[in-house]
């Protein structure tokens, strides 16, 4: 099982990536997200409605900042993936195990969000099928234009070895 934790993977532990903000988040991205997740609260799309609730204008749904991949600035991979990912060796599929989110303040359309990733750990774990798997923990910190952390996302994911031919 520990064979899965190769030197190539060990070398990734502690790796960091930084994606500077390309532009403001924008009201359209927030509205698009709210529609996609079925959230019709007007504070996400209507400045006046948001102001009536004490905000300066519309805000983003709480998890928008940690779910959008618009920061990465990558071109799509062969399978269409754009958001940040670590350069795992071939032969694994990645399955999300969980996320620990911390939010510091609401996100607004004018926010310019940069993201800093760090691969905190990778360790071997048992699996139901006996082939073993790896548990990786990656931390993303979302920073505003002033450099203040507005949210964090500690992501847990499993690397499961693919069967031959997969």
């Amino acid at each position: 099982m520990s064979d899965l934790l190769s030197d190539e993977i060990r070398a990734l532990i502690g790796a960091e990536r930084y994606y500077p903000a390309h532009e403001e988040i924008g009201g359209a991205a927030i509205r698009y997200f709210a529609i996609a997740v079925g959230d019709t609260d007007p504070i996400y799309v209507d400045d006046a409605a948001a102001r009536r609730q004490g905000y300066s204008g519309r805000i983003a749904p709480p998890t928008f900042v940690v779910e959008t991949g618009q920061y990465a600035g990558n071109t799509p991979s062969a399978n269409g993936y754009i958001p940040h990912e670590w350069p795992w060796p071939k032969g694994f599929r990645t399955i999300r195990g969980g996320q620990d989110y911390v939010f510091k303040r609401p996100i607004v359309p004018s926010d310019r969000i940069s993201v800093r990733y760090r691969l905190e750990s990778v360790e071997a774990k048992s699996s139901r099928d006996g082939r073993g798997q790896l548990l990786a923990v990656s931390l993303a910190e979302y920073l505003d234009a002033a450099g203040a952390i507005v949210a964090t996302n500690r992501e847990l994911f499993f690397l499961q070895p693919l069967e031959a031919g997969q």
Binding site: V37, G38, D41, P62, T63, E67, D100, Y101, V102, P106
Partner: peptide
């Protein structure tokens, strides 16, 4: 990750638009 958005939506729908979601352990 879509479930996070759903959970947040359920929280805000109940707690009101002024509620602040400070953390989620999914």
């Amino acid at each position: 990750q879509m479930w996070g958005a759903w959970f947040a939506r359920q929280l805000r729908a109940y707690c009101g638009p002024q509620a602040f979601v400070g953390g989620m352990k999914l």
